[in-house]
Design a protein around this nucleic acid. Structure first.
Length: 737
DNA sequence: CATCACGCTGTTTTT
DNA sequence: CAGCGTGATG
C-alpha cells in the first residue's frame, strides 16, 4: 500500500502532479529515487496502464531497481513499466523500424573499441598522404568525432574548443569522419551516437512513428536529466509533444558527464520547450549530517550557472569532515587502509564504507594495500569486462557470424590465429569477397601448392565452427559453448594469465541462457553490459566517480575521497579552464554528498611538491583541491607558466625554460632545440603578466603558481581561515611511516 | 611475412 | 603503464 506519509510535501507534490510537464530539481540525497518510485506506483494505482509508462534512467539496473521497488509498494503490475537507458530504448525502437530507415537486415551495435579499430584502418589507408605529420591517436579521433556528433557541432568547432593543437588537421579528420560514417552504413552497424541520432531523426521525419510512440508511452519520466545531451533532450521533446506528460528529474550540481557531451543546461532549457512546466525543488536532505552538508554547500557556493539550492537536514550531531595530508600517495593508501581496518574491527559492515576517486588508476596503490591486508573490496570503473581482449575475441565470432558485412569482426577472428597478420588477412578477405563465399567456406582458402599448410587446417576448423553456428540456429547458450570450445586453446596459448580469463569467458554461458537469440544477447552486452562497471565482487566499495551511478547503492556511512596529485602530465595540469574546473567541482560535490556520517578527504602534499621541484611549475590535483576549498590561498610567485596565444620568450640555459601548454613535451623539445641554436625562442604564448616574486593568490585556473615555503603550513593556515568562515575542517597529520 | 624487442609518448572519466 | 611505430629476426 502506498503510504504518502513516507513523503514530504514537496515530494508528494511531485508524485501527484501526474499530468503535464514537470521539472524536479532534486538535490543530492533529497529522496529523488523514492519520489520516482512512488510516482510510478501512484500512476499505476490511478489506473494508468504500466506499459504506457516509460522510465528512462542512466543504467538499466537503475530502472530495474526502481520498478522493483515500485512493485513492492503494493502493485505487481508495476513490473510491466517500460524502462531502460536512452541507448537501449533507442535500439529497441530502431530495431523495430530498421527496414524503414534503410537497414534491410537489421544492424549491429558497436562499442567505442570497435569504432577505434575502424578509424585505425581508415587512417592506415590515408596515412601515406600525411607522411611526417604527427597524427592524433585513433582514440582521440574517435573522441573528436563522437563529440561533434553529441554536441551537434562541426569538427572545426570541436577542434577549436577542445583540441586547438589539432586545428591544422581539420581536413584530415573531416575526411576520416566521412569515411567512418560511410563505413557504418555499408556494413550495417551503428555506434552509441548513431542510436540517438537516428532515433531522433526518426521522430523528426516520421510523423506516424512519432505519434505511434506517444500513443504507446503516455507518461514519460527521465532520471539524471542533468546528464543528458542535446540529442536526448530533443528526443524527450518529440516523445512528449502530443501528451506533454513529461517529468524530468535532475540536479545541475551533479552533472559530471560534460566530457561526453552532456549538457546540464538542459535543466534550464526544459522550460523553453515546456513553458508551463511545474518546477519543484527538493532540498531537504535525508542522507548526510549537517556538517557534511555545510561542506558540500560551500563547494557549490562558488559555482556558476546553477539552480541555487541549499541542502539542509534535520539530523543533528555527527563529526566534522576532515582533510588529511598524507604527504605521499603511498601514505594515502596506507592511511585509508588503516582507517578501513579500524572501522571493520569496530564491526562496521564493509558495504557501508566507500572510497571514491576521479580516475580508475588512482586506486591502484590502495588496491595493492588492501590486497596485502587481505581486505576484500568491490571496484567500479576502469577496465571493463567487455573491453578485455578475451571477451572481445569471443564476441568477434558472433559478430562475424551475425553480420558478414562487418569485416572488422572477422579480421579480429582471423588475426588471433598464428601466422595470420595484416597482409595475409587482406588476402583472405579479398578471396572471400571475390568468390562471394560464406564464412563456412573459409576452409577452402589456399595460397597454392604446399604453402602455408598449417593455416589451411586452421581455417578448415574455423569453417567448421561457422557451419556449426549455423546449424545451432542461433541458440545463444549452445553457440557460446561451441565458440568456447574452439577458442580455449587459442586463449591458453596467447595469454599467460589464462586461468582468470578462462573463468571470465565461461561466465558468458549462464548469461547467454537468458536470451532468445544471439542478436539480442550481443546487443545487450554492448548496450547494457551486466555489471558493466563492476570489476570485482564483495567487500568495501572502491568507486571511480564517473561510474557512481552504476555502483550498487549510492550512499555510504563512511566515505573516503582520494584526491591524487596529478602531476604526471604537466603540460595539461597547469591550465584548468573555467569549464573544466566547474566539472571537477561537481565531481568533488557528487563524491562528498554520498557520505552519510563521515567524510575524509586525503591528499599527498609532498608528492605534489616534489613534482613542482623537479618538473616545471605545474599545478597538481592537490592544488585544484585547495583552490576549491580555499579559493583564496596566498603565495609568492616562484615560476610562472604561460598560456598559448601571445608572444613570449624562453631563455637558455637553465633559466626559466618553460614547457609550453598545448603540445606537451613534443613541442618543448622543438623549442629547446631552437633555444639551443639561437639562445632564445620566440613563440606564440600568452604572458599572464606575472613575474617571480609577485604576491598572488593560488588560482584554480589561468596561472599555475608554485608557492614558496612549505605547502603544509599554508594549507594549515588557510584551512583555519576557511574554518572561521564556513566550516571546521580539522587538519590531521599522519606520521611518516 | 609474422613476430618480437625497443623506445617514445602522454589526461582522465562512459553510454 | 600501455599503445604505437620501427627495425631486426626467424
Amino acid at each position: 500500500m502506498i503510504t504518502d506519509s513516507d513523503l514530504n510535501p514537496r515530494q508528494r507534490e511531485a508524485v501527484t502532479s501526474t499530468e503535464g510537464p514537470l521539472l524536479v530539481i532534486a538535490g543530492a540525497g533529497s529522496g529523488k529515487t523514492r519520489t520516482l518510485v512512488h510516482r510510478v506506483a501512484h500512476l499505476v494505482q490511478k489506473g494508468v496502464m504500466p506499459e504506457s509508462i516509460l522510465l528512462l534512467t542512466f543504467t538499466r539496473r537503475a530502472a530495474e531497481e526502481m520498478i522493483e521497488r515500485a512493485s513492492r509498494l503494493g502493485d505487481q503490475r508495476c513490473r510491466f513499466v517500460a524502462g531502460g537507458t536512452f541507448h537501449s530504448f533507442a535500439y529497441k525502437v530502431l530495431r523495430q523500424y530498421s527496414k524503414e530507415i534503410g537497414f534491410q537486415n537489421g544492424f549491429t551495435v558497436i562499442d567505442r573499441g570497435d569504432t577505434e579499430d575502424i578509424i585505425g584502418s581508415i587512417i592506415s589507408e590515408v596515412k601515406e598522404r600525411f607522411k611526417g605529420v604527427r597524427l592524433p591517436k585513433k582514440s582521440t579521433i574517435a573522441e573528436i568525432i563522437s563529440k561533434a556528433n553529441n554536441l551537434c557541432k562541426p569538427i572545426y568547432h570541436i577542434l577549436r574548443d577542445f583540441f586547438p593543437h589539432f586545428l591544422d588537421l581539420n581536413d584530415l579528420i573531416e575526411a576520416v569522419k566521412e569515411s567512418y560514417e560511410g563505413y557504418k552504413v555499408t556494413h550495417q552497424i551503428m555506434d552509441y551516437d548513431d542510436l540517438l541520432i537516428r532515433f531522433l531523426a526518426l521522430l523528426k521525419d516520421r510523423f506516424d512513428i512519432k505519434s505511434n510512440l506517444s500513443q504507446c508511452y503516455r507518461y514519460i519520466m527521465v532520471d539524471e536529466y542533468q546528464d543528458t545531451n542535446k540529442i536526448q533532450a530533443q528526443i524527450i521533446v518529440y516523445l512528449g509533444q502530443d501528451h506533454r506528460n513529461v517529468m524530468v528529474v535532475g540536479d545541475d550540481s551533479q552533472a559530471i558527464y560534460a566530457f561526453r557531451g552532456a549538457n546540464y543546461k538542459n535543466m534550464f532549457e526544459f522550460k523553453n520547450y515546456f513553458p508551463d512546466a511545474k518546477v519543484i525543488k527538493l532540498e531537504e536532505n535525508y542522507r548526510s549530517t549537517q556538517h557534511i552538508l555545510n561542506f558540500t554547500n560551500a563547494i557549490m557556493e562558488k559555482a556558476v550557472n546553477t539552480y541555487t539550492k541549499c541542502l539542509f537536514t534535520q539530523r543533528k550531531g555527527g563529526i566534522l569532515p576532515r582533510l588529511v595530508d598524507t604527504l605521499t600517495e603511498l601514505g594515502q593508501a596506507i592511511f585509508v587502509a588503516d582507517c578501513i581496518e579500524r572501522l571493520l574491527k569496530m564491526g562496521i559492515p564493509p558495504d557501508e564504507i566507500a572510497v571514491l576517486f576521479r580516475a580508475a588508476y588512482h586506486s591502484f596503490e590502495l588496491e595493492a594495500e588492501l590486497t596485502r591486508r587481505k581486505i576484500p573490496y568491490v571496484k567500479y570503473g576502469g577496465f571493463k569486462f567487455l573491453e578485455s581482449a578475451h571477451i572481445k575475441d569471443i564476441l568477434g565470432f558472433f559478430r562475424a557470424y551475425l553480420n558478414p558485412e562487418d569485416p572488422m569482426a572477422l579480421s579480429r577472428v582471423l588475426m588471433m590465429h598464428k601466422q595470420i597478420g595484416p597482409s595475409r588477412l587482406k588476402k583472405i578477405l579479398a578471396w572471400l569477397k571475390e568468390g562471394k563465399r560464406s564464412l563456412s567456406e573459409i576452409g577452402g582458402y589456399s595460397e597454392g601448392k604446399g604453402k602455408a599448410e598449417a593455416i589451411r587446417t586452421e581455417l578448415g576448423r574455423l569453417g567448421e565452427l561457422f557451419k556449426d553456428l549455423e546449424s545451432l540456429n542461433l541458440d545463444p547458450k549452445k553457440a557460446v559453448l561451441r565458440v568456447l570450445d574452439y577458442y580455449t586453446p587459442i586463449l591458453t596459448e596467447r595469454f599467460d594469465d589464462y586461468p582468470r580469463r578462462q573463468r571470465e569467458i565461461e561466465e558468458l554461458v549462464p548469461m547467454a541462457e537468458r536470451y532468445p537469440d544471439l542478436a539480442s544477447f550481443l546487443a545487450d552486452l554492448v548496450l547494457d553490459p551486466p555489471n558493466g562497471n563492476l570489476v570485482q565482487e564483495e567487500g568495501i566499495r572502491s568507486v571511480t566517480l564517473s561510474t557512481i551511478h552504476s555502483a550498487k547503492g549510492l550512499e555510504w556511512s563512511y566515505v573516503f575521497i582520494i584526491w591524487v596529485a596529478e602531476g604526471r602530465f604537466p603540460s595539461f595540469r597547469a591550465y584548468k579552464d573555467p569549464e573544466e574546473l566547474e566539472e571537477e567541482r561537481r565531481l568533488l560535490y557528487v563524491a562528498a554528498t554520498r557520505a552519510k556520517e563521515d567524510l575524509i578527504l586525503t591528499y599527498p602534499s609532498e608528492d605534489a611538491r616534489e613534482l613542482n621541484i623537479y618538473g616545471q611549475s605545474y599545478s597538481s590535483g592537490t592544488e585544484t583541491l585547495s583552490s576549491f576549498l580555499l579559493g583564496l590561498s596566498e603565495g609568492v610567485v616562484e615560476r610562472v607558466r604561460f598560456k598559448k596565444g601571445l608572444p613570449f620568450k624562453i631563455y637558455h640555459p637553465d633559466g626559466e625554460r618553460q614547457g609550453p601548454f598545448g603540445e606537451g613535451v613534443h613541442q618543448e623539445k622543438r623549442i629547446s632545440s631552437q633555444v639551443e641554436e639561437k639562445g632564445s625562442f620566440e613563440g606564440l604564448l600568452e604572458d599572464p603578466g606575472l613575474k617571480k616574486g609577485d604576491k598572488v593568490r593560488h588560482q584554480a585556473f589561468g596561472v599555475g603558481v608554485v608557492s614558496k615555503g612549505p605547502m603544509d603550513d599554508k594549507v594549515e593556515v588557510l584551512f583555519a581561515q576557511y574554518g572561521k568562515k564556513l566550516l571546521h575542517l580539522k587538519y590531521t597529520r599522519l606520521e611518516r611511516l
